[in-house]
Design a protein around this nucleic acid. Structure first.
Length: 445
RNA sequence: CGGAGUGUGGCGCAGCCUGGUAGCGCACCUGCUUCGGGAGCAGGGGGCCGGAGGUUCGAAUCCUCUCACUCCGACCA
């Protein structure tokens, strides 16, 4: 993409309403525009990041055997009357009336709807286990939206629903989600720690939240510092192997890590003092096993092997996709701007032409651009007629992981400059070598 | 919803107290010079001052109502 043909409305000054760094940077980098309290347009650069995150979530969910679909944003009120939540949900639910005076609502979540779909089409234990998910916009009419996309009213969320014949199978589904989430966050360059959350309706270990450590987080967290060193890495995982999946979950939940809701000072005191940490975290996901809470009242049953009709065991599992954009920035930025992890960067590399209009520089940039595209990489080429400082400042702000700088001085020696945004290190190499290096990194992400 | 604020060009702000018909910086347009970390000079365009009433010869400014947004708190992916 050539910058002169793109839409990247960067701001030099920070809009007054933005209080936290991710919100400020998203506005300055031209990623979002607020349309109302807690409601944002995603401008082209922001949209790209959102799509990258969404893609990672899709890939990891499907790797775990979960099935994508799409449910609508608007839902009939009657479904929610069935579960009893039409009244329970309160003012946070946005209610709408259509021209025929029918009650609708903008979905804050989809348990009722997925249960309706399930009961209409599934009748036998032989159809289980089943995990369906979608990534769709939600609306929760928060009392006080804040922090940009981190606490918006409209937000993009992946929500998955599991249907199993019994508790053991449902817990395997729960565990699959934990592992797939860990892998998703790692691909996004995040360290997200599963923490035991406030216990659900059946108590016990049936819900975990995933927290990204950040000073601006909304939750207070208590943890053993050793959890921050745990990595899945590239290990192969067979999601159908219950014992193997359980082992991974055990590994990631063995150390003390809890939010203020479930914090246990006595257990925390058992953590070696040097590793005891109190901090703040941003919740970027939650997994939840709730047994038959929805299936029983809504009649989502199957016939089991003994011929009896039984309610299915369900779970719901969510990842805050749009919130992740903010969370990643909170976790990865410096005083000059965003530092995108490779996995979610809107463009993997930027090309900076220091002397637009100079024949040699223009030709070198065009050559680099074509060579990168030929390798399946789309660079962002700053071909504006701007001075070097302005171009560098823009690149630093929008945080592309790599920058190839092309100028007459280097070209005279046949070199361009390849700079890593994260480390700031740069090296003078040939254009061909620069393309190869970037291709290598992108392939490995 | 309780408390505290703010609405003036795309962004950041001044002007308001003490009414006299809107200004600064950035951005934008034109020209010249410049050109490896947000250039300089010159010229130029853009705002019925959130909205509605009212007071007044005259309202961005005073009064009333209203809408929106922000911050602190209780609630939440």
């Amino acid at each position: 993409m050539r910058l002169t043909r793109y839409f990247l409305p960067v701001l030099r000054e920070t809009p007054a309403e933005a209080q936290i760094v991710s919100h400020r940077l998203m506005l300055r980098a031209g990623m979002i525009r607020q349309q109302a309290a807690g409601i944002y347009s995603w401008l082209p650069l922001g949209w790209r990041v959102l799509r990258r995150i969404e893609t990672i979530v899709h890939e990891e969910q499907q790797r775990a055997g979960h099935i994508p679909m799409l449910m609508p944003t608007l839902q009939p009120a009657d479904l929610w009357r069935e579960s009893g939540r039409y009244d329970d949900y309160g003012a946070e639910m946005l209610r709408i009336t259509d021209r025929h005076k029918r009650d609708l609502l903008y979905g804050p979540t989809n348990e009722e709807m997925i249960t309706d779909i399930f009961r209409a089409h599934v009748g036998s234990y032989k159809d289980l286990p089943l995990t369906l998910y979608h990534i769709q916009w939600k609306f929760r009419d928060e009392i006080r939206p804040r922090f940009g996309v981190m606490r918006g009213r409209e937000f993009l969320m992946k929500d998955g629903y599991t249907f199993d014949i019994d508790r053991a199978s449902a817990l395997h589904a729960y565990n699959r989600h934990m592992v797939s989430y860990l892998r998703s966050y790692e691909r996004m360059g995040l360290t997200a720690i599963p923490m035991r959350a406030a216990s659900g309706p059946i108590g016990g270990d049936d819900t975990h939240e995933f927290l990204v450590l950040a000073a601006t987080g909304e939750s207070e967290v208590f943890y053993d510092d050793a959890v921050t060193g745990l990595r899945l890495g590239n290990r192969a995982i067979d999601y159908d192997d219950r014992a193997a999946v359980q082992a991974v979950c055990d590994e990631f939940t063995a150390l003390y890590a809890r939010t203020d809701e479930t914090h246990d000072p006595v257990a925390f005191a058992a953590v070696p003092e040097a590793r005891r940490r109190v901090g703040r975290g941003i919740e970027v996901g939650q997994i939840f096993y709730f047994a038959t809470k929805y299936s029983a009242p809504m009649g989502a049953t199957v016939v089991n092997a003994e011929g009896q009709r039984v309610p299915v065991h369900m779970g719901s599992h969510g990842i805050g996709v749009s919130r992740l954009v903010g969370a990643i920035i909170e976790a990865s930025h410096d005083d000059r701007g965003i530092v995108w992890p490779e996995g979610v960067a809107p463009f993997p590399v930027g090309i900076v032409n220091l002397k637009q209009g100079d024949g040699a520089a223009d030709a070198a940039c065009a050559g680099l651009y074509a060579a990168l595209v030929a390798k399946g990489i789309e660079p962002l080429y700053d071909d504006r007629d701007e001075r070097a400082g302005a171009k560098f400042a823009t690149m630093d702000l929008i945080g592309l992981p790599w920058r190839i700088t092309v100028g007459p001085r280097g070209l005279a020696a046949g070199k361009v400059e390849l700079t890593c945004r994260r480390t700031g290190e740069s090296e003078e190499i040939s254009p061909e070598a620069a393309v190869d290096r970037v291709a290598q990194v992108v392939a490995g992400r």
